[in-house]
Amino acid sequence: MGRISDRFDTLGAEGRRAFVAYIMGGDPDYDQSLALMKGLPSAGVDVVELGMPFTDPMADGPTIQLAGQRALEGGQTLEKTLQMVRAFREDDDTTPIVMMGYYNPIYSRGVDRFLKDAVEAGIDGLIIVDLPPEEDDELCLPAKAAGIDFIRLATPTTDAARLPAVLTNTSGFVYYVSVTGITGGAAAQASEVGPEVARIREQGGLPVVVGFGIRTPEAAEEIAGVADGCVVGSAIVAENATGKPVEEVLAFVKSLADGAHRA
Rank of each mutant, 00 (worst) to 15 (best):
E196A: 13
P133H: 02
A161Q: 09
E134G: 11
T94Y: 04
A263F: 06
E14Y: 04
Q69I: 14
D159P: 05
Q203M: 13
E134H: 02
V249H: 02
Q69Y: 08
L256Q: 06
M100G: 07
P217V: 13
T77K: 08
G44W: 01
F114N: 07
E222C: 04
I128P: 08
Q32R: 15
L206G: 14
S171N: 02
G259L: 02
S178D: 13
F8I: 11
G181I: 01
R262Q: 10
E247I: 05
G25L: 05
I123W: 00
L139A: 00
V237S: 03
E192A: 14
V20M: 10
G147L: 07
L250Y: 06
Y22I: 05
D137M: 05
T95Y: 00
D46C: 11
M1E: 12
A146N: 07
G12W: 05
A227V: 10
V179T: 14
L206K: 12
A143D: 01
G51K: 10
F88L: 03
L34T: 12
A18T: 13
D92P: 03
E14W: 03
P245C: 03
G12T: 12
S42R: 14
A190T: 13
V246Q: 00
A71C: 12
E222S: 15
K116C: 04
A165I: 00
A187I: 10
S178C: 13
G68K: 08
E247K: 10
E14A: 15
G233S: 05
G259D: 00
S178N: 11
S108V: 08
A260Q: 04
E14P: 06
G205F: 09
G172W: 07
A188L: 10
A190K: 13
I128G: 07
P132Q: 02
G12Y: 01
F19P: 09
L66M: 10
L72P: 15
G243Y: 06
K144S: 13
V166A: 05
P132G: 00
M58Q: 11
Y102F: 07
P156W: 01
Y22L: 14
L115A: 08
M100Q: 09
D130P: 08
P133Q: 00
T155G: 11
Y175I: 08
A235S: 09
T77G: 15
R70P: 15
G211V: 15
Q76A: 14
A59Y: 09
D159S: 09
G185A: 15
V232L: 05
E221F: 10
D159E: 06
V177Y: 06
D92A: 12
G74Y: 10
D149G: 07
T216W: 01
V197I: 14
V20T: 15
A35F: 12
L72Y: 09
E239W: 01
G259H: 05
F173E: 11
A165Q: 10
V119L: 07
G110A: 01
S255L: 04
V193W: 06
R7P: 03
Q83A: 15
G25I: 07
L126N: 02
P57M: 11
I23H: 01
G61V: 00
K244Y: 02
F19I: 14
G44Y: 11
D112I: 01
A154Y: 04
F150N: 06
A165Y: 09
V129A: 11
A188T: 13
Q83L: 11
D136I: 00
M24F: 06
G181D: 09
A165M: 03
K38L: 12
P164R: 02
D228I: 10
P207K: 13
L82G: 08
R162T: 02
